[in-house]
């Protein structure tokens, strides 16, 4: 399998390309959207892209269990990030009545 074949039929390159494009789309969401909740979802997307690449390498190294352990830790960190990040968004909304990240440009009220 070479080149395009590997991408279309699910070789290692195919999974890596999907992971890279997923990361790029997540980064685009963080950079281009202004709603904090959407930017937060973009960060989750980037974490997921890393997971896809990690588990693809694990599969092609013969089912390495270490990668699965790291996947679990990444999920735990993502869950912590979700809880604290959403709490911060709610706190910001209370002060400024908006979830637009551009309007949170200063620390003063």
């Amino acid at each position: 399998m070479t080149g395009m074949d590997a991408i279309l039929q699910g070789g290692l390159q195919g999974y890596l390309v999907v992971a890279l494009l997923l990361f790029a789309l997540g980064l685009a969401t963080v950079l281009l959207r202004r709603t904090l909740l959407l930017q937060f979802m973009g960060v989750e997307l980037m974490l997921n892209a890393a997971n896809v690449a990690l588990l693809a390498f694990a599969r092609f190294r013969g089912g390495d269990a270490q990668a699965m352990v790291f996947y679990l830790f990444i999920i735990a960190v993502a869950a912590c990030e979700a809880a604290v990040g959403l709490a911060l968004v709610i706190g910001l909304y209370r002060h400024r009545d908006s979830t637009d990240s551009d309007r949170a440009a200063s620390l003063k009220q």
Binding site: M1, G11, L12, Q13, A58, F60, R61, G62, G63
Partner: peptide, 14 residues
């Protein structure tokens, strides 16, 4: 490329 070639022969489920 070499990892993809050698890894395809190892279908070990997690």
């Amino acid at each position: 490329k070499s990892l993809a070639a050698s890894g395809a022969a190892m279908p070990q489920a997690m």
